[in-house]
Computed example of a mutant assay.
Amino acid sequence: MAPDQYTQTDLDFIVPRVLELTYTSHDLKPFAQDLGYQGEPFPFDPERRHQLKCELDAYYAKLYGLTRDELRYILDPADVMGEDYPSETFRVLRKKELNTFGEYRTQRLVLEAFDRITTTQNTQ
C-alpha cells in the first residue's frame, strides 16, 4: 500500500503504534517530533511491544482485505485445514510460544485484535 493510500483513520491507528515501537531512545527524538510527539521515549516493555505488533499485523491484514479465516490460515494453516495438514508458517514461533505460554499466543492476540478492528469498523 502506497503512503498516499492511507486514510486519516489508518494513520490514526498505525502512527501511534509505530511511534511507541520505535521511539525508545532519546536518539530518535527528532523522529518523534516529526510525528508531533513531544514526550519522553517509551519504555521498552516486551509485553506491550508484542501487543502493539499483533495489533499492527491485524490492521494490515484488514487493510489488505483478508478475512478472519485467511488470517488464521496465514498464522497456522493446520488450524484451518486440520492437524494433518503438511504445511506450517511460523513453526518456530508457534513451538516457542506453546512451550513458554501453553498456547500460540501470537495467533490469539492477532485474531483478537482483528476481531476488535472488524467490530469497530462495522459500528462506524
Results as ranks from 00 to 15, higher is better:
T123R: 14
D4I: 08
Q124E: 12
E47H: 15
L19K: 08
T120G: 00
E20F: 03
V18T: 15
T22H: 05
L52D: 11
L109P: 00
R94S: 12
Y85G: 04
Y104I: 06
T118P: 00
Q121R: 13
H26Q: 11
L52F: 14
D12F: 02
R105A: 08
L93H: 04
K95S: 06
H50Y: 04
R17P: 10
Q51M: 10
G39M: 04
P77R: 09
T22L: 14
Y64M: 12
K96E: 14
Q5T: 09
R68W: 01
Q107A: 07
M81L: 07
L21W: 13
D76S: 05
L111D: 09
E83V: 04
Y23N: 10
L56W: 03
G36H: 12
R49G: 13
L63W: 00
R108C: 02
F90L: 11
E97H: 05
Q51Y: 09
D10R: 00
Y6F: 15
Q8M: 07
F42S: 08
D84K: 12
Y64R: 04
Y59L: 14
C54F: 07
V110E: 01
D76Y: 00
L111V: 00
P43A: 08
G39L: 05
R116V: 08
K53G: 01
A78Q: 15
D10V: 03
E88F: 11
Y59K: 11
Q124V: 13
D79R: 06
G65N: 06
E112Y: 08
S25Y: 10
I117H: 12
Q124H: 12
L71Y: 06
K29R: 15
I117S: 08
L63I: 14
P30D: 04
G102L: 02
R116F: 09
Q121N: 13
F90W: 11
T22C: 10
L98T: 03
F114H: 08
R108Q: 14
L93N: 07
T120F: 10
Q51V: 15
F90A: 04
E83W: 05
